[in-house]
């Protein structure tokens, strides 16, 4: 039971190391057209991303079974981090940011060691997996505005909202991710998923700057139970909530 798993892991790690070495010497080239970008992105994808996300982008690479949460299925065009309203495709910049920063708290690393051009090439290639990028209109990012200063009254208002809006139902009264609904949560593919422990800033999938937290509350986390609060809260209230959440971060 254990041996095949370990050997698959070893093989995958070995492949990753070889790929890493090969990629070090891959020249950026001069990418002028979208088709060039897609081709370059495909070459990179097959070296860097395929082990988790699979050659067809379905999130079914050889090591996918061993990582939690599961690697994203890229063929549906549903991504955790998007600056667009719920149901919207991510913008190119959203995908670029996710590639650059990784998804903290998951096995998705930051690919900041790749050049910007290489990351844009990956964005172009990743967008070929989902038909929605060709057929659905792209939405514009939500307006975020200027942050509200984290004064005590804003933090307290956020705390009251956290109780009243029942954020604790999943995230728990102390933000530990242990609310009553937490044990039954599933992602859009039916795999178990846990709410983030909000006290640990590296768990914030979309980043932990005030604007990132605001965005995650306003539009939700794509493909997960975390919903968009844009219809439920005013911009002012989302800033209060952001300030409260910043106040409970311990590390």
């Amino acid at each position: 039971m254990g041996t095949p798993r370990i050997s698959v892991l070893v093989a995958a790690v070995a492949l990753c190391v070889v790929a890493e070495a090969a990629a070090q010497y891959a020249p950026d080239g001069n990418l002028t057209s979208r088709a060039d970008l897609v081709r370059a992105g495909r070459r990179l994808y097959l070296r860097r991303c395929v082990f988790c996300h699979g050659s067809s982008g379905r999130g079914d690479g050889p090591v996918a079974r061993y990582v939690f949460p599961r690697p994203r299925d890229l063929t549906l065009g549903v991504f955790k981090i998007h600056s667009t309203p719920t149901g919207g495709l991510p913008t190119d910049q959203d995908l670029f940011n996710t590639l650059s920063r990784g998804l903290p708290g998951t096995t998705m690393p930051a690919w900041s060691n790749l050049s910007e051009q290489q990351r844009w090439a990956l964005v172009a290639y990743i967008e070929t997996f989902a038909a929605a990028f060709r057929t659905d209109g792209r939405l514009v990012p939500i307006a975020i505005g200027t942050p509200k200063p984290p004064l005590p009254e804003s933090v307290l208002a956020g705390r009251r909202l956290y109780i009243e809006a029942e954020c604790w139902k999943c995230h728990g009264m102390l933000g530990k991710g242990d609310g009553p609904s937490a044990p039954t949560l599933e992602d859009d593919w039916g795999y178990p998923i846990v709410p983030a422990d909000l006290r640990i800033s590296r768990n914030w999938r979309g980043g932990n700057r005030p604007v990132d937290i605001y965005r995650s509350i306003a539009v939700g986390i794509g493909g997960t139970p975390m919903p968009s609060w844009a219809d439920a809260l005013t911009s002012d209230q989302i800033w209060d909530m952001t300030n409260y959440l910043l106040s409970i971060i311990q590390q």
Binding site: G87, M226, P227, A232
Partner: peptide, 20 residues
Amino acid sequence: NVHTRGTENRPVNKAQPGFL
């Protein structure tokens, strides 16, 4: 919360707290 899942339509997920 209201969470829709289809194949043609992209998933929509909106929070609906008691006051909404």
